[in-house]
Structures are given as C-alpha cells and as structure tokens.
C-alpha cells in the first residue's frame, strides 16, 4: 500500500517542514496578487457595480467550505478503514479551518446580499444548506472534543463526518434544483463558465491562494498536534524517570 509511505509521522514532519515556507509564501503572494486584481483591475459589474468585488472573497471561501468538508470526510474514511494516525490528525486539524471558511462565506454573502438583494439574510436553499454545513462543522468539533478518550472522539467524529457528507451535493445543486434568489453556478457548469474572463482570472488566483493558505495552516496545525504529543510523551517519560530515581531513596 503506497499510502503507508506517508503514514509515518516522522516523514510527515520532514516533508511538511520543507513544504511549509514555500506553501505559505505562495499563498501570501497569490492572495496579494488576487486582491490587487480583484480590487483594482477587474471591471465593476454592469448591474452590481463595485459591490461585485465581494465575490472574490465570497466565492473562494464557499468553495473552500465544501472542499474542506470533503477532505475531512476522505480523511475520516481513511482513518476508519486503515487506522491511519495522520488521517485523524488531518481531519481534526482541518475542521476549525473549514468552519472558519464557512463563516467567512456566510458573512461576506450576507454583506453582499445587503447591497444586492436589500436584505442581510433570506431563507434561500443555498444559504440554508451552507448554514447547515456550518452547524455540521460545529457538531463535528463538539463531538470530537466531548470524550475523555481522544481516540474515541476521533472515531465518533469520523463517522459523523461521513454521515454529514450527504449535505455537500445538496449545497452544490441547491441553486439548480430550486428557483431561488441566489444566482446559479457560473464557473463550474456544463458548457463552460458564463463569467467574464476579466473577472474569472482574479477569482481563480484567489481560489488557488485560498487553497494554499488552507494547506499551509493545516500543516502548521498538524505539526503542532504531533509536537504536542511528543512533548507530552517526553514529559511523561521525565516523570517516570524522576519517580524511579526517588523510589530507592524513599525505600531506604
């Protein structure tokens, strides 16, 4: 099984230490370029005016919200099937980030909606299903942290993540299935994107930047978890050593 080559935490630490600076720098550069293109180069929309620029944050964070959930689900499946230790760490590390992207998506969408639809919130199918996604993230986080035994929390969370995956297709297709206020898909659709190229490029740059940003944060979180486990193990060993050193003295 070639996957097991990456199962080794020590190899992950080496690999991520090498990748992390590049990933972070590329993320910072792409987001900076993307923001410049989005704020100064891209033309204002003929209907929406300048407010359309919210899209360049809103849409990538919406994509990330779904992508991160899918990643958690895949990592959970790997963790349940192969008991892969890094998969659990990856799923748990990704969850707060995914919740953050979902919140960002909801907040920017709300701001955009206030300008365009004249209301902060409507109970539209896509808005509602993204809100449900946010609660799935919160439920996952609460469940993972609800047990005294972290291993049990991780396994219970993995099952919940797989159950919650049913919501992802609902989010993707909600705008096509129901006639709602939210506009239908304009980038990933059959027959090619309907969005103008001058807007598509900044959007894609931002999306790749968000993706690299996420992976950089995920690597930091996973490395922190692994280091914390190592520090804990070292401390316990130190306590054992001290206790063993004191025992003969107490006996005499």
């Amino acid at each position: 099984m070639s996957l097991h080559r990456f199962a080794n935490p020590a190899r992950f630490m080496r690999l991520s230490a090498a990748l992390l600076p590049w990933c972070s720098a590329a993320a910072a550069a792409l987001i900076a370029i993307g923001l410049y293109l989005a704020l100064f180069v891209a033309p204002p929309d003929y209907q929406q005016g300048e407010a359309v620029r919210i899209m360049f944050v809103h849409v990538p964070s919406a994509w990330m919200a779904s992508f991160v959930y899918a990643l958690i689900a895949v990592a959970s499946a790997v963790a349940l099937i192969w008991r892969h230790p890094l998969a659990d760490i990856a799923a748990q590390g990704a969850a707060p980030l995914g919740a953050g992207f979902t919140l960002l998506c909801l907040v920017t969408g709300s701001l955009w909606g206030e300008r365009m639809w004249g209301t902060w919130w409507v109970w539209d199918a896509r808005l509602t299903s993204v809100l449900v996604l946010f609660f799935l993230y919160l439920g996952y986080l609460a469940l993972v942290n609800a047990f005294d035994d972290p291993g049990r929390g991780a396994r219970a969370g993995a099952i919940l993540a797989l159950v919650g995956i049913v919501n992802l297709p609902i989010i993707k297709f909600s705008v096509d299935w129901w006639h709602t206020l939210h506009q239908p898909a304009s980038v990933f659709r059959l027959g090619g994107p309907t969005i103008a190229a001058a807007m598509l490029w900044p959007l894609l740059v931002m999306a790749v930047g968000f993706m690299l940003f996420f992976f950089a944060l995920l690597m930091i979180r996973m490395r922190t978890t692994l280091m914390a486990a190592k520090i804990r193990a070292l401390r316990l060993a130190e306590i054992d050593r001290l206790a063993a050193a004191r025992r003969p003295a107490a006996a005499s």
Binding site: L136, L138, G139, A146, L160
Partner: peptide
C-alpha cells in the same frame, strides 16, 4: 458516553 451528551445530541441531529 460523551460529556454533555444531551446538548451534543441536539447539535448533531438537528441539522440533519
């Protein structure tokens, strides 16, 4: 066996 099982249960189930 979770801490605060009741509240947790509603957080898990209500979205679904």
């Amino acid at each position: 066996g979770a801490r605060r099982g009741g509240v947790l249960l509603s957080l898990l189930v209500l979205p679904l």
